[in-house]
Simulated scan of single mutants.
Amino acid sequence: MTGDWLARDRAELAAERILDAVRELFIDKGVAGVGMAEVADAAGCSRATLYRYFENRQALYVAFAGREARQLAQRVWRDRPFPVHAPPAEWLLDMLTELLAEVRKTPYLAVWFEPSNAGIVAQLADSPGVVDALAANFVVGFRPGLPAPAARRVGQWVVRAMVSLLTLPGAGEDEERAMLRNFVLPFLLDGRTVID
């Protein structure tokens, strides 16, 4: 089976195959319990091949989290275009709330926010690969005039707020919506918010 991997000339396809294989491992063993040897076995490749695509577990985690975040956003927002002529606050609040719910009901995502994985999630929340993608594809949609460094900082804040709610859930959806409304939406929507 290793020869099949070596014959492939499309790195993206191979990386996607590895990321697909790791989903079940995260469900079965938890994120912290998955080693690179197990990932290689699950993907049907050698460890040398695995390391060709992902230099270490952190790189694998960043790639997985980035891909899953993009796919999650596409699933949630696919049928709900941004309201061009209406205030976006309630729409955005609904979308952020739905993102939280979707993560919690998706087993290979929910496992990331169990207490045993808190350190891994904290590192990923501050990872440039995840935050930059969020800033580029999400924040600038709400604050188009925001310079790239400021959009990155807003993206970091949104990621940290969402990770906090997933790791330490509130008393319920109403409390979470209130926290999002009071502490996240102003940074996304209010042009008067100063970001140095």
Rank of each mutant, 00 (worst) to 15 (best):
D132N: 11
A63Q: 03
R143P: 05
R78E: 12
Y51E: 13
A110T: 09
P128D: 06
A86Q: 15
G66Y: 04
A161P: 08
Q74L: 12
R57S: 07
E68C: 02
F64V: 05
G129M: 09
A37N: 13
A86L: 14
P83N: 07
R143N: 06
D190N: 12
A15H: 07
G145E: 01
Y61V: 09
A171P: 11
Q58V: 02
V163R: 05
G35A: 11
E102Y: 08
W77E: 12
Q58F: 05
E90T: 02
S116L: 14
M95Q: 15
L166G: 02
D126F: 03
V111T: 04
A43P: 04
L60R: 05
P81C: 10
R57G: 09
R152Y: 15
G30T: 07
G145P: 01
G44T: 05
L96R: 04
T167Q: 14
V121H: 03
V140H: 03
I120R: 04
D79P: 01
V121A: 08
Q71P: 00
R160Y: 01
A101N: 11
A110M: 08
D41C: 00
P147I: 04
V31A: 03
P147N: 05
G66F: 05
F113M: 08
L50H: 01
Q156P: 03
A125K: 13
A136W: 04
A125M: 10
G170N: 11
A133W: 09
V131G: 04
R17Q: 15
N137I: 01
A150M: 12
A125E: 12
L13K: 15
V140C: 09
Y53D: 13
R181T: 06
F26W: 11
E114M: 11
A48T: 15
F113H: 12
V31C: 09
F64S: 12
W77A: 14
V39Y: 03
F64T: 11
G119V: 00
S116D: 15
P147Q: 10
L93Y: 12
M36K: 06
D126I: 00
M1H: 13
E12F: 04
L168R: 11
L165I: 14
R160C: 03
R143C: 10
F183M: 14
A21N: 10
Q74W: 00
M1C: 02
G44Y: 12
E68H: 02
T2P: 03
D79V: 00
V76L: 01
A135M: 05
R143A: 09
R57D: 06
D132P: 00
P88V: 13
F113L: 00
A73L: 13
A69K: 02
R23H: 10
G141S: 14
M36F: 07
R160T: 01
R192G: 13
V139C: 00
R143F: 06
R152C: 07
M1E: 08
P147S: 12
Q71K: 05
E98D: 14
R78Y: 02
D9S: 13
P88T: 09
G44S: 08
E68A: 04
R78V: 00
A151P: 10
L6R: 15
I27H: 00
L165S: 02
F64P: 05
D190A: 09
P107F: 04
S116G: 14
L109R: 09
E176H: 13
C45R: 08
A118W: 01
R177M: 08
